[in-house]
C-alpha cells in the first residue's frame, strides 16, 4: 500500500510537470510559431501605445528572447523559490509559489487565486452535497421502481437536466426567482459573503447557483445511479443475499447500493476536482468572483500569466482528485487492493 501510494504520488508530480509544459508551450511556443515576435508579446505588458523600442527593451527584461527551455526553467523556479519581475520603473517581488505576475493589474497571480478559491470551493461543495443527495436517491428509487410514474418523471427531468446548458437554466432561474418579480426569494447574482463573516448570507447568496449547478449534475448522477443499481440488483450476490433471508432494505442498501455506488466514487472525484478548478459557466452566469470567472476575465484581457496560473491550479485539482479517487477506490473495493 505504501509503495502504491509513493508510486501514485510520483506519477501525480510527473503528470503536473507535463501539464505545466503543455500549458507553457501553448502560451509561449504556439504564438511564436504563429508568428508572434518577442517584442509583440512584450508589447502587451508595456501598453499598446508604447514604442517599438520600449517593447524591445521590455522583451529583453522579461526574458522573452531567451531560449524557451530557459524561460520554462525560470517559470518552474518561480513556483519553487519565488521570482522578481522588473517591469521598468521598479522591481516587483513575487514570493513562492510564484505562478506568474500580472503586468496588467501589477499583482502576483497566486494571492489572487487564493482570494478566489473560497468562492469556487463554496459553490462546488454546496452543489455537490445537493446533487449527491438528490441524484443518488432519485437514481436508487427509480431503479427499484423501474417503469413506475416516479421513474418515468424522474428520468424525463434528468434528460432535461443533462441536455439544458447552465447558462440557460441559470438565466431562467434568475428570471423566475430573482430580479424583483413576485417569486424573487433568492439573491441576485454577483454577491458573495464569506462563510466566516455570515453563514446565513453566504448560503442565501449561493443558493441559486447551487441549485443550477446541482440540477445538471444530479441529472447525470441519477441516470448513472439508476443504471448501476439496475445492473447490481440483477447480480447473483443479490439473489444470495435474499436467499439468506435478509430483509429487502438490507439487500438494497448493504448489498445493492454498495455495489452500485462504488464506481460513482470515481466519477464524483473527477467532477468535483474539475469543478474546484473553476465552475466557469455558473460563475459567469451569476457573476460570482470565483476561479472560473477569474479565468474568463484573464482570457478576455489577454492576461497570459493569469491564464497560466489558473490553468495550472485547475490541473492540480484534477490530478489531486484523481489520486484521491484511486486511493479511495482501493478502500471501497477490496479486489483493487492487492494489485
Amino acid at each position: 500500500m505504501v509503495t502504491y501510494l509513493i508510486r501514485r504520488l510520483i506519477g501525480a508530480v510527473i503528470m503536473l510537470l507535463i501539464v505545466s509544459m503543455a500549458t507553457f508551450a501553448i502560451f509561449f511556443l504556439v504564438p511564436q510559431i504563429a508568428g508572434a515576435t518577442p517584442e509583440g508579446m512584450a508589447s502587451r505588458y508595456v501598453g499598446r501605445t508604447a514604442s517599438a523600442e520600449d517593447a524591445k527593451i521590455a522583451a529583453d527584461r522579461l526574458g522573452f528572447n531567451d531560449p524557451l527551455v530557459v524561460q520554462y526553467g525560470r517559470f518552474i523556479k518561480g513556483i519553487v523559490a519565488g521570482a522578481e519581475f522588473d517591469y521598468g520603473p521598479g522591481v516587483e517581488q513575487c514570493p513562492p509559489p510564484c505562478l506568474g505576475y500580472s503586468f496588467i493589474t501589477r499583482q502576483p497571480v497566486w494571492p489572487d487565486l487564493l482570494d478566489r478559491l473560497p468562492v469556487t470551493l463554496s459553490l462546488a461543495v454546496g452543489a455537490a452535497v445537493l446533487w449527491l443527495i438528490i441524484g443518488l436517491s432519485t437514481g436508487v428509487i427509480s431503479a427499484l421502481r423501474r417503469g413506475s410514474v416516479f421513474d418515468r418523471a424522474a428520468m424525463t427531468l434528468a434528460l432535461a437536466g443533462v441536455s439544458l446548458p447552465i447558462f440557460f437554466t441559470g438565466l431562467i432561474s434568475l428570471l423566475v426567482f430573482s430580479y424583483g418579480n413576485p417569486f424573487a426569494v433568492f439573491a441576485q447574482g454577483g454577491h458573495y459573503t464569506p462563510i466566516t463573516e455570515n453563514p446565513g448570507e453566504w448560503a442565501y447568496n449561493l443558493i441559486l447557483p447551487w441549485i443550477t449547478l446541482a440540477f445538471l449534475f444530479a441529472a447525470q448522477y441519477a441516470r448513472l445511479t439508476r443504471a448501476g443499481m439496475l445492473e447490481t440488483m440483477g447480480e447473483d450476490y443479490i439473489r444470495t443475499a435474499r436467499a439468506k433471508g435478509l430483509i429487502e432494505r438490507t439487500v438494497v442498501v448493504k448489498h445493492g447500493m454498495r455495489g452500485a455506488l462504488t464506481p460513482i466514487v470515481t466519477i464524483f472525484g473527477l467532477d468535483f476536482g474539475l469543478l474546484v478548478g473553476g465552475a466557469v459557466l455558473t460563475e459567469s452566469t451569476y457573476s460570482l468572483p470565483g476561479l472560473g470567472k477569474y479565468a474568463i476575465d484573464a482570457i478576455t484581457n489577454n492576461d497570459l500569466p493569469k491564464v497560466m496560473g489558473v490553468t495550472l491550479l485547475s490541473a492540480f485539482f484534477v490530478v489531486f482528485a484523481n489520486l484521491i479517487v484511486d486511493l479511495l477506490y482501493a478502500v471501497v473495493d477490496p479486489r483493487v487492493r492487492l494489485s
Binding site: 454498495r258 471501497v332 479486489r335
Partner: peptide, 30 residues
C-alpha cells in the same frame, strides 16, 4: 424461513458472493 429452514447453494460461488465483504462477514450476516 429462507436461510433458516431452507437454504440454497448456487452455481458460481465467485459471482454469488458479494465481492466487497469478507467471507466471514457474509456468513456472520446470514
Amino acid at each position: 424461513l429462507r436461510g433458516k429452514r431452507m437454504a440454497m447453494i448456487f452455481q458460481d460461488p465467485l459471482s454469488a458472493m458479494h465481492p466487497y465483504y469478507t467471507v466471514g462477514n457474509q456468513i456472520i450476516e446470514a
